[in-house]
């Protein structure tokens, strides 16, 4: 005959009581999550994005390294084509597409021709680029500027306004810091200071660069030595979003109202900071490469302080 007591000493009644509390915890957690998601959806960009077209929508691709040959990706043109097709399949026409550098692998004229030709396949009214260090291997970025520098200033930097957002494209790959990282230089810093001076502090600002504008991993040159000066001109703005390439992996950092988002690549992955002696291309097991590659969709809705980012793996 059952006594109602298990071998551990807990009565059935106690077991039921504890089970009830556990059930309540689960139910409350799920319900709480639903409520928070609903509130976030009704006040944030998510619902607005569903109900109305965002003020600005664009896509970011990065580090296509056209011309690369190696086991890490035996067909960088193939994966770049897939990335372009994925942008074209977003379900809307992006206001523009930004390529955040290392379009080519060795800055060869044929590689610039090829990548420029491939970019014309993007279904968007505007394509913007910033150069990577691979785009200025032997000529200080001259071939890059011939291919993509129309309408830019200085060594290829620029700014423009679109849908109430101020966008700045920077070049931090022409001279290097002591650690091999990015450098902007005084001319470009002057440009930034004068460029943003007339803007009101509630203007959303987006900054594109190849090297990160924060010290992601200085030992590998993953940073920009004079970025602090550039950022000092931007700190008064309520929303500053810095998008960069170079590191071939997703990484996010916030400093007050400034948010940094590194992008993944369409070519090959690099190791995480500090994994190994140097950032060399990583060869993944068969079938895993596409998980490390991708594109980014960015939306901005007027009145929102932050941009909505949606990462997509290469499908």
């Amino acid at each position: 005959m059952s006594t109602g007591r298990d071998p551990q000493g807990m009565t059935r009644r106690q077991l039921m009581v504890h089970s009830a509390w556990f059930g309540a915890a689960v139910v409350l957690t799920v319900a709480g999550g639903e409520v928070i998601s609903h509130v976030a959806g009704s006040t944030g960009a998510a619902q607005a994005a569903q109900r109305a077209r965002p003020t600005l929508r664009f896509a970011q691709i990065s580090d296509s390294h056209i011309g690369f040959t190696g086991t890490a990706n035996t067909s960088v043109t193939g994966t770049f084509t897939e990335a372009i097709n994925q942008v074209n399949g977003l379900g809307f026409t992006p206001d523009f597409v930004i390529h955040t550098g290392d379009l080519t692998h060795l800055s060869k004229p044929a590689q610039f021709d090829q990548v420029k030709q491939m970019l014309t396949g993007l279904n968007t009214p505007h394509i913007f680029t910033v150069p990577g260090e691979h785009d200025s291997v032997d000529d200080g970025g001259q071939k890059y500027r011939q291919a993509f520098g129309a309408g830019t200033r200085g060594d290829g930097w620029y700014s423009f306004d679109i849908a109430g957002v101020h966008v700045i494209g920077l070049v931090n790959t022409l001279s290097f810091s002591k650690m091999g990282g990015g450098h902007l230089g005084t001319d470009q810093l002057d440009f930034i200071e004068k460029d943003v001076a007339p803007l009101s502090s509630d203007t959303p600002v987006i900054v594109f660069s190849h090297f990160p504008l924060f010290a992601m991993y200085p030992d590998w040159g993953w940073g920009t030595d004079d970025a602090t000066q550039a950022l000092s001109y931007l700190r008064r703005f309520s929303s500053v979003t810095c998008l960069n390439g170079h590191v071939h992996q997703l990484f996010t950092k916030t400093e007050g109202n400034i948010t940094f988002h590194t992008a993944t690549t369409t070519a090959y992955p690099l190791p995480h900071p500090g994994d190994g002696p140097a950032p060399k291309p990583v060869t993944l097991p068969a079938g895993k490469l596409h998980d490390a590659l991708g594109i980014r969709e960015v939306s901005y809705i007027k009145g929102q302080q932050t941009l909505a980012l949606k990462e997509q793996k290469l499908s």
Binding site: I36, A40, G44, L307
Partner: peptide
Amino acid sequence: YIHGYQYIPTI
């Protein structure tokens, strides 16, 4: 979460 963090991947 409501005021921006929802857009940071995983976080």
